[in-house]
Amino acid sequence: MAKSFDPPNIWSPFGAFSQSVISGGGKTIYLKGQVALDRDGEIVGDGNMSAQVTQVLHNVADILGAMGGQMSDIVSLQQFTTDIQAFMQCGEIRANFFEAPFPVTTTLEVSSLYDHRLLIEITGIAEIPQDRFIMPETTQEMHR
């Protein structure tokens, strides 16, 4: 089970993130960067940061859910946005998906994502406890 740790000798987190996460003992899941695509691969919320953040976090939750995971299993997030100011207004949306203790988080503003209509991409690492982990039937060996 992963545990968050905010050392008392550095600045306190001011949002939905932790300073560090200690993990081990579960199944580590590395998430591909998710963008605001629906099940059919169509962009959701063209020009709307709130709609795109919501779709991206639903995608992440769905991926983890397929393996018995939950959003609380995420230990680290990397967020790439084309508009940091608009993204910072989405804290309430993130609060609907995360609760303390929060994952460590890095957010960067980038000039563009792979499609100019996309405003946000989020990738991360999760650790699903062994007793909840469900191995998907359609996995493929990566190292042969």
Rank of each mutant, 00 (worst) to 15 (best):
S18K: 08
I43S: 02
G91V: 09
H58Q: 11
V104Y: 04
M135T: 14
G69A: 04
F87L: 15
L108R: 14
Q140D: 06
A95M: 14
T107V: 15
V75S: 12
T28I: 15
G124W: 10
H58K: 15
M142N: 06
R144I: 01
E141D: 12
I125F: 01
S72K: 13
N9S: 12
R117V: 03
I128P: 05
M142I: 11
Q19G: 03
P101R: 03
V75I: 13
I93N: 01
G45S: 12
F133S: 02
I22L: 13
A86C: 06
F14A: 07
T106E: 10
P13A: 03
Q55M: 12
A36R: 06
E42Q: 15
A66M: 07
A66S: 15
F98L: 14
P136L: 11
H116P: 08
W11H: 11
I84G: 00
I63D: 12
I10D: 03
D62H: 14
G15P: 03
T54S: 12
V44N: 02
S50Q: 13
G41C: 09
F80V: 02
L108Y: 13
Q34H: 13
I134G: 01
L57A: 03
Q34L: 03
G47F: 12
S112D: 09
D115Y: 13
T54Y: 13
T139K: 02
G124E: 04
G24L: 08
F98M: 11
A36K: 04
C90K: 01
T105N: 11
D115I: 08
T123L: 10
K27G: 00
L118W: 11
F80C: 12
L37V: 03
F87A: 10
G65Q: 07
A36C: 05
L37E: 03
T54V: 00
G45Q: 09
P103I: 10
N48P: 00
F133V: 06
E121I: 03
E137Y: 09
F97L: 03
F14S: 09
D115T: 10
F17K: 09
Q19M: 04
M88L: 11
G124A: 07
R94W: 05
Q34K: 14
F133H: 02
F17C: 01
V110N: 05
L64C: 04
M88N: 14
E92D: 15
S23V: 09
G41L: 07
R94A: 11
E42K: 14
Q79I: 15
E141H: 09
Q55N: 06
F98A: 07
I43P: 09
V60P: 00
Q70K: 15
L113P: 06
T82Y: 06
D62G: 10
L77I: 09
P7K: 09
P7L: 05
Q34M: 14
S112P: 00
M71G: 04
S72A: 11
N9Y: 14
F87D: 08
A61R: 15
A66N: 14
I22F: 11
T81M: 08
S20K: 04
T81R: 08
D40F: 14
P101S: 04
I120Q: 05
P136H: 10
K27F: 12
M71E: 03
S23E: 10
D6Q: 01
G24Y: 08
T54R: 14
